[in-house]
Computed example of a mutant assay.
Amino acid sequence: MKPVKNKVVIIGAGMVGSAVMNSVLTLGLAAEIVVIDNNINKAKGETLDASHTTSFAYSPNVLLRVGDYEDCTDAQIIIMTAGPSLKPGETLDRLLLAEKNVSVMKSVMSSITKYTKDAVIIVVTNPVDIVTYLAQNHFDYPKEKIIGTGTLLDTARLRRILAMKYSIDTKNVHGYVLGEHGGSAFATWSLVNAAGIPYKEFHKLLGSKEPVDTDATLAEAKDTGLKILELKGYTSSGIAMSVSRIVKAVLLNELSVLPVSTTLDGEYGITNVALSIPCVISSDGISQKLEVPLSENEIAKLNVSANNLGKILDDLNIRK
């Protein structure tokens, strides 16, 4: 069935799923938002609470409701947030988390594919690169229609940190965090600039005496998620807005270039692993994967990410 324009299905009504629902609602682009969760009462409470915001001026009159997988039949976008996440104080066992959420993703994708292979699927569940690979390569679903949030939030954090340090609008800072959404993520310092000013010139031209400390800046960007987890018990706002950024690009066919996770097919000499590189996002999903110019050192770091993720895929016995 042809997707209904601006119908969004969110799978999972937990902290992230509910934040995504509210963020997508605030965008004013969705006509219908359907929430699916095993805890039906939680889903009902979230949609009921959010539905009352539509009474206010400048709030879109969106239909919010609880549904089931049959609602995927005519969805334009499906957002996957279900599955356990890291809790404060827990040891980060990525393989254990991967095993649990691979199982969840298998169940979810099996349910989705009963009803559609036309919707764009945005994968949020961690470890996002592993789960994205599974979804793209094991269910005969068009790969370009599955997008992992990947390092989009890491990139936003890096840009924000630099913008705050040098007192400029975050949206004028450019550059990416690429690779794994995890420990081996790296910043493309060869591309980082603010309004065309290379990062090495920030302290000279942007009114600060301190040059960019690349190691400390990247570490802060990568550690922010764990810091938020320790402080408030979970992360939600940043990832919700990251998802909404992708949703907007799809719904408006923006052709925006965003760093998202997808299976590489020879880009930078890497194959058969999903990780983040800049991609063109359209109404069809990922319409193009871009091999932006990287330094030799950065390409080496991308390969480190690929090897790390490949080992997990092999340990889980899901790499084709």
Rank of each mutant, 00 (worst) to 15 (best):
P259Y: 03
V257S: 04
G238I: 07
Y234P: 05
E220D: 08
V247S: 06
A221T: 00
N253G: 14
I228A: 01
V243C: 02
G238Y: 12
K222H: 06
L226M: 04
T235W: 05
L229N: 06
G238K: 09
T214M: 02
M241V: 07
D213G: 09
T214K: 05
G238V: 04
D213C: 11
V250I: 15
L258I: 15
D213P: 08
A221G: 09
T262A: 14
M241F: 14
L231T: 04
L251I: 12
K227E: 02
L258V: 14
V260I: 15
S242F: 07
I246E: 04
E254V: 07
T262E: 12
N253K: 14
T262C: 12
L252R: 10
G266T: 13
K222I: 10
Y234H: 07
L264E: 01
A221Y: 03
L251G: 13
S237E: 10
T217G: 12
D223H: 12
L226N: 01
Y268G: 00
E267D: 12
L258P: 15
T224K: 15
L218E: 06
A216P: 11
K232E: 00
V257Q: 10
T263S: 12
V212A: 01
L218M: 01
T235K: 08
M241G: 11
A219W: 06
A249F: 08
K227S: 08
V247D: 11
G225A: 09
L264N: 03
D223T: 07
T235S: 03
L229K: 08
S242P: 06
